[in-house]
Design a protein around this nucleic acid. Structure first.
Lengths: 342, 342
DNA sequence: ATGAAAGCGCTAACAG
DNA sequence: CTGTTAGCGCTTTCAT
């Protein structure tokens, strides 16, 4: 691998000039600049990012740390899509992206990774407290996704969970549903309580009653949700619609309904949350609540970029609005008493 | 941030000793080692990975490069799962993981990543030729997943596409199917032709005829596959089973069949490929061909590790065996003439 | 516009 | 077992 001095020799200039030719092209005369770049080309020289990082104290790398209890981590329908956008945005800015899950980071070996001197960190979902606080202690720019820690001046990108669930409930209410159940998931406390309270609140606003038997909370796995929903739908007095706290739960709900012989949405309406890839795999396709995952990823790196460039931001938490992604799993309530199936 | 000399000062030793205490703990006396670590702890010292990389010429980082035409890149049902395993394996080995897609890498900004001096690169699916050859020129260890380039001595991890498709065809034949169609996808040439030839070959072995009308090749997107399959299943003489080149296509096939009023698997059997998360989302759950994605990820980093440690390997291409993941989308053929539906 | 020189934080001989 | 010293490849004052 050619180094800066190889290029300097070949071009007949000092290494300082070569350095300038690459970092501040306008500070060297056109002729020498050309000579340098020619030499660099024939030598296949590329500035060594490590050496550069050593002196500039900036590595040009960002990290995306995944909350590991949220399995699958990378393939997560929500965070995976955000990551996809993050990688794209970061690369466009010339930054490299590291990824890791927080449990693996807490391995002896994993600790090594924390010394990598990244220029910024994105925490998806609940951050590992130790990692987060050491990052803040080092003044490393940080942004959290879907979590708000009890630390002051921490940048957060949140989903409008309240608004999202409210949209789902209102949508169902507009279709005539009055008996609406809620399938919650064992996510992080933060998300879980926000979506749950959003549900209660929306119900209240619309004057609908909350029926404890129609509320269930389970692990966001299809089979688990299927079984849970079967219980709810087997009640004599059962809901005609189910609001689910994410798409995985909604897929489980649809399967549960179908397994009982109900058809979706004719007998039971179901809504999901995330507007993930699952929505179009499911049959019928899932009506869901959409948070712009692509935008969230872009905002995350944008937030890091402005922190890196020292722009002082007054606004630490930003909430992305939720919209309805209307598909086929929700429809007008068929019979208002909802009990004719048996 | 404390540096090595801060620790040396506090512990009253030279920086070389501090360095040893961290890299080769057994080369310093127990008492001074303790003194050093105590000092390091109170100073919150962590060796600077950049400085270390600078002199050792090893960064402790690996890269995972994603073939970008394979959208979604990161959330890809197959490669995403492999990546998940790669990240976990790499972190356990104390390596950091970079990720990038190859088109973004070819941005002016993206080229930077190639200077990041990673210790090894995993290419998923088709590698960008330029990046691959420059990596090989630099003697950077490399391993390809699901692709075999026309370069000698390149490590490859392949799926047993021939065997996998054969398993699907045989499975269907055992269920009594004689009229089997094939839904191929516009993947990379490598995968596409292997799965296609695997199909032809399996058909031949079983003495089943290949009907051109029952063969279709489309973009691996659900709606596209749905439409394509509707055409095949609308034929007077239609197949009773469809082998699909991946799960996304299979989901589309199931939807196409259902939209036509057929039920799966009673009227039409469908098999997928990858045994991905889609399988259990689909209703009925998809019978698929399983390649151990977790193992593939582990093998990929293992392969890099042994290249890094200078172990000479004689075997450059390794093929992972395929197995049948039996679920509900395939069943005994109902009526051998298969045309009673109209 | 360009060069000389001083490091960045660490490792790796080489001495002792 | 420990200290000294010479860099790794680059950027960045400070001169010229």
């Amino acid at each position: 691998m050619a180094t800066i001095s190889d290029v300097a020799n070949m071009a007949g200039v000092s290494i300082a000039t070569v350095s300038r030719a690459f970092s501040e092209p306008d500070m060297v005369s056109p002729s020498t600049r050309k000579r340098i770049h020619d030499a660099a080309d024939t030598l296949k020289y590329r500035p060594n990012a490590i050496a550069r990082a050593m002196v500039t104290k900036r590595t040009g790398n960002l990290a995306f740390i995944i909350y590991s209890k949220q399995a699958p981590a990378i393939m997560n329908p929500f965070y995976g899509a955000v990551l996809e956008s993050v990688v794209s945005a970061a690369t466009k800015e010339g930054y490299g992206m590291f990824i890791a899950t927080d449990t693996e980071l807490n391995t002896a070996a994993g600790k090594l990774m924390l010394q990598k001197q990244v220029d910024g960190i994105i925490f998806s979902s609940k951050p590992d407290y130790e990692i987060l606080s050491s990052a803040k202690a080092n003044n490393t720019p940080v942004v959290l996704i879907n979590h708000e820690p009890d630390m002051p001046k921490t940048h957060c990108l949140l989903s409008d969970d309240y608004g999202g669930i409210r949209i789902a409930v209102r949508h169902l209410a507009e279709l005539g549903h009055e008996k609406i159940g809620f399938v919650s998931g064992t996510f992080t406390d933060f998300i879980r309580t926000r979506r749950y309270h959003g549900f209660l609140q929306a119900l209240g606003e619309l004057g609908l009653r909350f029926v404890p038997e129609w509320f269930i909370e389970c692990e966001p796995a299809i089979e688990v949700a299927t079984k849970a929903v079967i219980k709810i739908l087997s009640l004599i007095d059962r809901p005609t619609a189910l609001v689910c706290a994410n798409d995985t739960l909604a897929v489980g709900a649809v399967k549960g309904a179908q397994r009982l012989g109900f058809s979706v949405p004719e007998d039971i309406s179901v809504t999901g949350f995330d507007d993930s890839v699952l929505c179009t795999v499911c049959e019928p396709e899932l009506t869901s609540i959409r948070i712009d995952k692509d935008k969230m990823g872009k905002l995350a790196v944008e937030c890091l970029m402005s922190q890196i460039s020292g722009v002082t931001q007054t606004n630490y938490v930003r909430t992305l609005t939720a919209t309805l992604a209307l598909r086929s799993s929700s429809a007008k309530v068929r019979n208002l008493n909802g009990g004719s199936h048996e």
